[in-house]
Simulated scan of single mutants.
Amino acid sequence: MQTMAEIGLPSTFTSGGLASMVASTQACRFEVAEFFVSWQGVLTVAYTGFPDALLELKSQVADFYPGLVKEFPGSKWPKTSIACLRDNKRLSREDLEKLRDICSKENSYLTSTTPLVEVNQLSIVLFANCCLEQTLCQTDVSLALPASTAGPNSEHCASVRAVLDEFRRENLDNYYFNASKDGNRTAHYRGFKAGVTLVHFLTSIPRALARFRERVERELPNMYDWFADRTLHITVRAIL
């Protein structure tokens, strides 16, 4: 695969600018929180929050590119999207309850087998679809060592926790409106769309994911399309 420099994108995305800011960012890690059903029924692995080093990087990127689009809500809290509803599928209230049960039963196995995700590298990706299964070029940038072992700050953790708490059992009646919305189906993720994003690709796939997939397919057969393991990632910031 070509790098961004080889394809002719501006040096602010490669040797300087964004790549330079990434290279100056301290390596860090995410703490795994839980399986989470996001808006439009997207299945995710959620994390407790962005480490301070990555929050600072996000601020630097926004300052360096004043014309950058406003950050999307979905990247303000860290997650790995693992599956989307198939085209023309919609969650029922009963479906959402089933997913809540599956997540509750699988969360302890997830956090016990994959408590942390080490982040030693970020990738600047020119993609051809939103799930990154089709990419045009990629520049990988190593983060600065030694790695930080600090968790996310308490204020940020609280804001992320507020998002995740919307999926608590006692809140499902209200949350169902957002979980059942149209959009973000297979065509959205796998149809052609070009852009640039800054991500961390998972270097190992959580063991709990296979068991989670199996339970979802058993309880909700043929509802979900699962993203390829090789493309699973945490979005730090959309760029273009």
Rank of each mutant, 00 (worst) to 15 (best):
E6S: 09
S11R: 14
M21N: 02
V22N: 01
A23C: 02
R29M: 03
V32D: 05
F35K: 07
G41H: 03
A46M: 03
E56I: 09
L57Y: 01
L57E: 05
G67P: 08
L68I: 13
K70W: 14
K70I: 15
G74E: 13
G74Y: 15
S75V: 15
I82H: 05
C84P: 11
N88F: 14
K89R: 15
K89M: 14
R90Q: 14
R90Y: 08
L91A: 13
E94A: 14
D101P: 04
I102G: 08
S104G: 07
K105E: 13
S112R: 12
T113D: 10
P115C: 03
L116A: 00
F127N: 08
N129V: 03
C131K: 02
Q134R: 10
D140E: 05
A150M: 04
H156N: 02
E166P: 00
R169F: 06
N171P: 02
L172R: 03
N174C: 10
Y176A: 04
F177E: 06
N178Q: 11
S180Y: 05
S180T: 06
K181P: 01
K181Q: 15
K181A: 12
N184K: 15
R185E: 05
Y189K: 08
F192G: 01
F192Y: 09
G195N: 02
T197D: 01
F201H: 10
I205N: 12
R207K: 13
L209D: 07
A210R: 10
A210D: 10
F212E: 06
R218S: 10
L220I: 02
L220D: 03
P221G: 05
F227P: 05
D229P: 09
I234N: 11
T235L: 07
I239Y: 07
